[in-house]
Nucleic acid binder design. Sequence first.
DNA 1: GAACTCTAAATTGTAGACAATATTTTGACG
DNA 2: CGTCAAAATATTGTCTACAATTTAGAGTTC
Lengths: 220, 220
Amino acid sequence: MSLTLDAPAAITLADQALQAIQARIVSGELAPGTKLSEGELASEHGISRGPLREAIRRLEARRLVEVVPNAGATVVCLTHEQLLAVYETREALEGMACRLAAQRIEASEVAALHALLDQHEQALGGAAEARYLQEEGDFDFHYRIARASRNEILASMLCDDLYHLVRMYRRRTPGDHGRGRQALAEHRHIVDALGAGDAELAELLMRRHVAAARYLLNDN
Amino acid sequence: MSLTLDAPAAITLADQALQAIQARIVSGELAPGTKLSEGELASEHGISRGPLREAIRRLEARRLVEVVPNAGATVVCLTHEQLLAVYETREALEGMACRLAAQRIEASEVAALHALLDQHEQALGGAAEARYLQEEGDFDFHYRIARASRNEILASMLCDDLYHLVRMYRRRTPGDHGRGRQALAEHRHIVDALGAGDAELAELLMRRHVAAARYLLNDN
DNA sequence: GAACTCTAAATTGTAGACAATATTTTGACG
DNA sequence: CGTCAAAATATTGTCTACAATTTAGAGTTC
């Protein structure tokens, strides 16, 4: 189960560097605020500065790094307000994605979503390590709905830009103790709305779902 | 009156090339589907291939060009479905921007928006050439609301990505004969909702406004 | 005459060297 | 001792050259 929405088989060195560095940022190995030296990173990845610069600029476009001309790049360091802004944007985009998905999703995809939620339900009672898989499963859920919108631009903005930021900061927020069950119930209602083709309801439920996650950001 | 949301004073050659090529694409000089040869463009702009490649990749991130590894870049050529997708995404983002703006906009900004609309009203009866200014004025209106959302990510997605695509394809769609007055009326209602701090209504009106523009895409 | 193959030209990907700018260190002065 | 200034260092921006891949075309074969 690939979580990264059909990652294009990295052909060029810049592509490989992009994916490698992005993974290091999202995993936390390269913490927010870390300076990214071109020479250092290039030798670490065994490539020249040319392709590495290209990777850095693409990470900048994805909002994972910030580049100051003549001064270099640093891993993005979001303020609380900026993280709220990410969730506000998510709410708008995921809401629309869910609305469109309700109109365009296939029955087989709805069935697959229900199966995914069954899986989550079983993992919910499980051990502590199941928590990690559950978190990733949550992203899988949202990825699938983004794709089901049949809107490539919308899906790309969510999957290529915002989700990486959310993952990056999720491990830093305490939150969701006992929210697993609640989130699962919300997911189930969303899939029901998708299956019924109720676009209005699907959008409403998704927006509430994302908003609920946003409210948790304030309790820390 | 700068329409490009605080364009950072182009310091680096790559920045200058980005803005120059972007202008050529949006204006139609570089038509959709045009092959962008690195060597050719580099000599045209009097720079080396290095900075030019960087400009190309940033245009790719803004969805104005498409790059195929080892094959080169072409100016993006949207299908009708993809253009609809742009408007669907706009509806989601501008709706949320308008909702947030209603909560955060300052009285002086509301007054400035009314003044802008007064200007449009006068230009409406005017000559044919006023049409052009009116079109640009429409973008100015939307830019200001995006900024008033106080959400940098949301504003950047609209101003840096989507609006360029919309401008690029607006000149190709026949549409809005006599829609000027209607659009102006919608704008006025939106500003009224902003001034009243009615977030729900502001979002609803903006979404309808964008949706109305989208429907026009089908009549050609 | 159409289709395939192989060669040659052109274009993109990458590496390394140099120039320009920022940062750090060192020293002097108040 | 702290602060400012200037040189030394390090880092980024840019250019040129080379390698790898794709594309165009000539030639051949069926």
